[in-house]
Simulated assay, not measured.
Amino acid sequence: MNKFSKIFLVLCAALSFFVLAGCGNNSSEKTVKVGIYGSDDRIWKPLATKLKKQGVDLKLVEFNDYNTPNKALTQGELDINAFQNYHFMNDWNKANKGNVVSIGDTYIAPQRIYSDKIKSLNELKSGDKVSIPSDATNEDRGLRVLRQAGLIKLNNASLHTVKDITENKKHLKITPLDAAQTAHSLTDVAAAVVNNDVAQDANLKPESAIYKEVINKESKPYVNIIATTKDKKNNATYKKVVKAYQTEFIAKKIKEVYKGSTYPAWNYNFNK
């Protein structure tokens, strides 16, 4: 083998090494399984496109209830999820001896009262039926919204149920239902307290609500979050997802998808 042949082989070997190294770099792309609920796919899909360019492959797993995303997270079927608020997370951890933690704020969405039968809360009659979400966190929140609207009074419990109503002058029949069913219940009740994501999926227009929850400093527990398990809270890739989420691009997407009914929470002024 002459000198030039040896040089050629060395160069080929070097080129092969760099090609393989390049392939190795491509395989370093990180896959993150994200559990989301309902309409949020319209926020997370554009985010997935942006993160793909940064070496993060988001795999969206959609849920249609509030009960299973944290179970899936703690069982290792998900890496992160984004469907719950702080209040829900803390309550779920207590009830399930869980280790779910927040790694970043997403948005806050006021609950609203909707009706197919009346145009104003003043039109509620004695004994009318009102539905609210039944999971512990949103039942408490729904009752607080009814109190805020001047329809009932509550005791000082930290997490209210209908048993904590101390005054109900109109004798409203307040019925907790699965959150996803509150919008559908409008054919049977005078009014319903509906979570914003449920209202969005049911095509309820925010401007048609007869009451909107007032957002203030007491609303902070209802900020929605990106969550993972405690042992993964410092994961660099998950932090990269949070950083990509908390941008003006996603803030605009939130306003677009939810038609101005939902507010980015990472820079929201809760004291106004």
Score class of each variant (00 low, 15 high):
residue 23 C to F: 12
residue 212 K to N: 12
residue 3 K to H: 04
residue 41 D to G: 12
residue 103 I to P: 08
residue 80 I to E: 04
residue 76 G to W: 01
residue 181 Q to W: 03
residue 240 K to C: 07
residue 256 E to G: 02
residue 172 L to S: 12
residue 232 K to C: 11
residue 207 E to A: 09
residue 121 L to D: 04
residue 188 D to S: 13
residue 203 N to M: 09
residue 198 V to R: 06
residue 124 L to I: 07
residue 46 P to Y: 07
residue 105 D to V: 00
residue 96 N to G: 01
residue 37 Y to T: 02
residue 127 G to F: 00
residue 194 V to M: 10
residue 195 N to K: 10
residue 8 F to Q: 12
residue 237 T to E: 13
residue 89 M to S: 10
residue 45 K to N: 12
residue 65 D to V: 03
residue 103 I to G: 12
residue 145 V to S: 06
residue 55 G to Q: 02
residue 4 F to K: 14
residue 32 V to G: 06
residue 263 Y to D: 10
residue 115 S to K: 07
residue 131 S to V: 10
residue 33 K to W: 06
residue 66 Y to F: 15
residue 109 A to V: 07
residue 45 K to E: 14
residue 79 D to N: 14
residue 241 V to E: 00
residue 135 D to I: 06
residue 40 D to W: 02
residue 73 L to T: 00
residue 92 W to G: 00
residue 208 S to N: 13
residue 190 A to N: 02
residue 133 P to S: 13
residue 92 W to K: 03
residue 172 L to M: 10
residue 173 K to A: 15
residue 192 A to L: 05
residue 53 K to I: 08
residue 71 K to D: 12
residue 53 K to E: 14
residue 106 T to L: 10
residue 120 S to Q: 13
residue 55 G to Y: 08
residue 170 K to Y: 00
residue 97 K to T: 02
residue 234 N to Q: 09
residue 36 I to F: 03
residue 244 A to L: 08
residue 129 K to Q: 11
residue 50 K to D: 15
residue 154 L to P: 05
residue 86 Y to W: 07
residue 15 L to N: 05
residue 244 A to Y: 09
residue 31 T to W: 04
residue 229 T to M: 07
residue 108 I to Y: 08
residue 124 L to K: 05
residue 237 T to S: 13
residue 55 G to V: 04
residue 140 D to I: 05
residue 9 L to T: 11
residue 53 K to R: 07
residue 227 A to G: 08
residue 17 F to P: 03
residue 223 V to L: 09
residue 263 Y to Q: 11
residue 90 N to L: 12
residue 61 V to C: 03
residue 257 V to T: 09
residue 131 S to G: 09
residue 6 K to M: 12
residue 186 L to V: 01
residue 216 N to Y: 07
residue 108 I to P: 09
residue 110 P to S: 09
residue 69 P to D: 08
residue 118 I to E: 11
residue 261 S to D: 11
residue 27 S to I: 02
residue 265 A to T: 06
residue 36 I to H: 03
residue 56 V to T: 10
residue 70 N to Y: 13
residue 84 Q to D: 14
residue 9 L to M: 13
residue 75 Q to F: 06
residue 168 N to L: 01
residue 192 A to F: 02
residue 102 S to C: 06
residue 247 T to P: 07
residue 103 I to Y: 10
residue 71 K to I: 14
residue 263 Y to W: 01
residue 27 S to T: 15
residue 65 D to Y: 03
residue 192 A to H: 08
residue 64 N to A: 12
residue 196 N to D: 15
residue 42 R to H: 11
residue 224 N to P: 00
residue 252 K to G: 03
residue 236 A to N: 04
residue 250 I to V: 15
residue 81 N to T: 10
residue 217 K to E: 15
residue 189 V to N: 05
residue 123 E to I: 10
residue 92 W to M: 01
residue 54 Q to P: 02
residue 232 K to L: 15
residue 242 V to H: 01
residue 166 T to N: 02
residue 34 V to D: 07
residue 67 N to Y: 13
residue 127 G to T: 05
residue 39 S to G: 11
residue 186 L to S: 05
residue 106 T to W: 03
residue 83 F to A: 15
residue 7 I to F: 10
residue 161 T to Y: 00
residue 20 L to D: 06
residue 108 I to F: 04
residue 118 I to R: 05
residue 128 D to L: 09
residue 224 N to S: 13
residue 117 K to L: 06
residue 26 N to Q: 13
residue 117 K to E: 10
